[in-house]
Design a protein around this nucleic acid. Structure first.
Lengths: 236, 236
DNA sequence: CAGTATATTGAACACTGTTCAGATTAGTGG
DNA sequence: CCACTAATCTGAACAGTGTTCAATATACTG
């Protein structure tokens, strides 16, 4: 899975645009990207350790050994930093999903692969709860919408559904619509879970709730005949 | 639909607890509730007009003609104010949902009532986008979980599903699980929509996506035989 | 080595939520 | 009607936030 070709939104000169820069410029650009990465790493760790409220420009600056004002040489605003964090988070989600799908051989039914992907997505979110919540709470102003999600986890899901629809393993009006619906369910579930709006009482209740929801959706996707076949299978 | 009996979390004395207070206390308590309501109204309007970032204690104070510090006589913190706003928002959601369900006579199929409820929920959220986003972005620390959602919209949905399951109109393992799944889908969809992560390109695409998702879930709920019957019906 | 574009600082500005001592208010008992 | 007490409210302050900007330091180039 290659990284999305999305161009960087930062300011100033940077790598991977004009190709081979020579001499100083090249050196500078490299250094610039390293510092940017360091800042992002520090920000990410700050969120994961101390929650969203722990992510302050001053704290980030101290973590990378800079003065607060210096950060504005690399990011126009805190918002842009968050936005970048969002893209990186998406990539993490995608990587996780893709990995799981790759691990599941072609002997795994497509419906089960769909469930595997959903679980991978949720697991990732639960491992970085504050980051996920923060990232999906801010509005996406970058106009990046569905179309260019080529190798996003959404895209993977979409491909899966298309393949399943062609094989007749699944019956959908439009895979794009269905993929959106599944994404909405998974995202909504995780969001409710992370904001403490789902029961946590009996240990593992959330897992069951999640599986039950997936099962309903899976049933809804089945062709009009064989309902039973989706009941069994690998429960992750 | 009566208001939930949830006790108020505020500080100081207030009405509807010890019943008939006499004299001054009573007067004070009434005044207190009025001011609290005014503050909440101002806060709500502030969010709806200028977004979450427009909701500052100073702005609220000015709106109600008080000094900033005075607000802390009525709410321990901004967080508590938000929490109260959350409960009120939930009640608004519930009222809307209940209203729609009441309007739909018993001639409406339960599956269609479910869809009506979902649409009512979404419509309400879209009418107060910033408020909804703000409210569901903060963690719910009050430990109020599923069980006591007696007359929440979630509860209404649950009742609907139970009734449908008994009549055999729907086939579910556990209505509670299914209701959670549906809620997750609706909430997730609205959340993605409000944070600009769904396509808005062709006018009305979001509506179609929403309906498609609901349809998949509806199919998944149908008993193993009559798949077709859920296709038609009132689309809101 | 001098020159220059980039990096970095440190202090400031306008905000934020929150606290608190003191002044103001309002209903009550005498 | 007045003094009393308890609830209110103010205004100033504090610590913290994101952000800007003149001045300084740095590091590569010709």
């Amino acid at each position: 899975m290659k990284l999305p070709g999305r161009e960087r939104k930062g300011i100033g000169l940077s790598l991977n645009e004009g190709q081979e820069l020579t001499g100083a410029r090249r050196w500078r650009a490299r250094h610039r990207d390293e510092v940017r990465a360091a800042i992002l790493d520090a920000a990410r760790e700050l969120v994961n350790r101390h929650g969203a409220s722990g992510l302050t420009m001053r704290a980030v600056a101290e973590a990378v050994g800079y003065s607060p004002g210096a950060l504005y040489e690399y990011f126009r605003s805190k918002g842009e930093l968050l936005e970048t964090l969002y893209f990186q988070g998406s990539e993490g989600l995608n990587a996780r999903t893709a990995q799981v799908l790759a691990d599941a051989g072609p002997e795994t039914s497509l419906l089960n692969r769909m469930r595997l992907a959903a679980h991978a997505y949720r697991d990732y979110a639960l491992e970085h709860p504050d980051l996920y919540r923060l990232i999906f709470s801010i509005a996406n102003t970058t106009g990046s919408e569905l179309p260019d999600f080529e190798d996003s986890s959404f895209g993977a899901l979409l491909g899966l559904l298309r393949e399943a629809a062609e094989r007749g393993e699944v019956q959908v009006d439009d895979p794009l619509y269905t993929a959106t619906g599944l994404w909405a369910f998974v995202h909504g579930f995780v969001m409710l879970e992370l904001t403490g709006r789902l029961p946590s009482q009996p240990e593992g209740i959330a897992n069951e709730l999640f599986d039950a929801g997936l099962k309903v959706i899976a049933f809804g996707l089945l062709p009009r005949d064989d309902h039973r076949s989706a009941t069994g299978g690998t429960s992750v």
